[in-house]
């Protein structure tokens, strides 16, 4: 298993946020996590990434308990891909990606030739090597997301955690970015992403997990778990789940009375 979370619970003060969460993700799978706003998806990610401590239960990455791993070693186990955001300074794309290599050398050094090659290779894997010398703030949102993914690749960790990677992207870029993400599983990467788009979850993932009220309420292959009842339970709206292409593609649409 690439990621095993076992009976994880977490509270902010007296308020429980995560309740007894257990799941595991095999190597090379892409898993989508669905859940309403405020249900604890980001908190769960922050626990897994080691940004929050003080939870009960355990998080194992590739068999290693993350509670006993130093930050710099963690960076080589898990990479975090945030939503597209504006950094305070206008770094070049290459510099942004180079920052992913930083856990590989001591704080007294700077990235050298080896790291540069690594960064350029990561950009190439995302198909955006031409952007290397552009300014990060001058490229499109979709390209920025790909840069953040290239940075994660240059980190050399095999588990990628993404918090709504396509939240601020247009329809075309959402699909392009998700195809890129999907293609990474065949290169040995394991991916856990939070998403608000059930159709994206159905189309691109091997497994779907649904969270509500700080618990995992469903987990399994998209064909098995995605039905109207589950989506209604998560989001509180009425939906219809339809099939097309002889059942190969499923999609859900809201129903209006």
């Amino acid at each position: 298993m690439m990621l095993s979370v076992d009976r994880l619970s977490f509270s902010f003060g007296q308020r429980p946020v995560l309740r007894d969460i257990s799941f595991s993700i095999p190597h090379g799978q892409m898993v989508s996590l669905l859940g309403p706003n405020g249900t604890g998806k980001s908190t769960l990610f922050r626990c897994i990434l080691g940004l929050l401590t003080g939870y009960s239960g355990s998080v194992l990455v590739d068999g290693k308990n993350t509670a006993r791993i130093r930050l710099s070693d963690m960076a080589r186990l898990i990479a975090y891909i945030p939503q597209v955001h504006y950094p305070a300074f206008n770094f070049t794309v290459l510099d942004m990606v180079l920052m992913g290599t930083s856990s590989r050398f001591s704080a007294l050094y700077m990235p050298g030739e080896r790291e540069k090659e690594k960064a350029l290779l990561s950009l190439e894997m995302m198909g955006i090597q031409d952007l290397a010398l552009r300014n990060y703030m001058m490229i499109s949102g979709g390209e920025q997301q790909l840069v953040l993914m290239a940075r994660a690749l240059s980190q050399d960790s095999r588990l990628l955690i993404m918090d709504e990677p396509t939240a601020s992207l247009d329809f075309g870029n959402q699909t392009r970015v998700m195809q890129c993400v999907r293609s990474l599983t065949s290169k040995g990467y394991t991916i856990l992403q939070a998403t608000h788009n059930p159709n994206q979850a159905i189309m691109f993932s091997d497994q779907i997990m649904a969270m509500s009220g700080g618990r995992i309420i469903a987990q399994g292959e998209p064909g098995d778990v995605m039905n109207a009842a589950l989506i209604e339970e998560i989001y509180g709206i009425r939906v219809r789940v339809e099939c097309m292409d002889d059942g190969k593609t499923r999609y859900c649409v809201p129903v209006f009375e």
């Binding site: 070693d73 963690m74 975090y80 510099d95 930083s102 856990s103 980190q155």
Partner: peptide, 20 residues
Amino acid sequence: LRWRINILSLGDDEARTLGV
């Protein structure tokens, strides 16, 4: 330490997941 200041400028959470 000047290279690492780049990473600090990305914000705490992101810098920590990058191993800083």
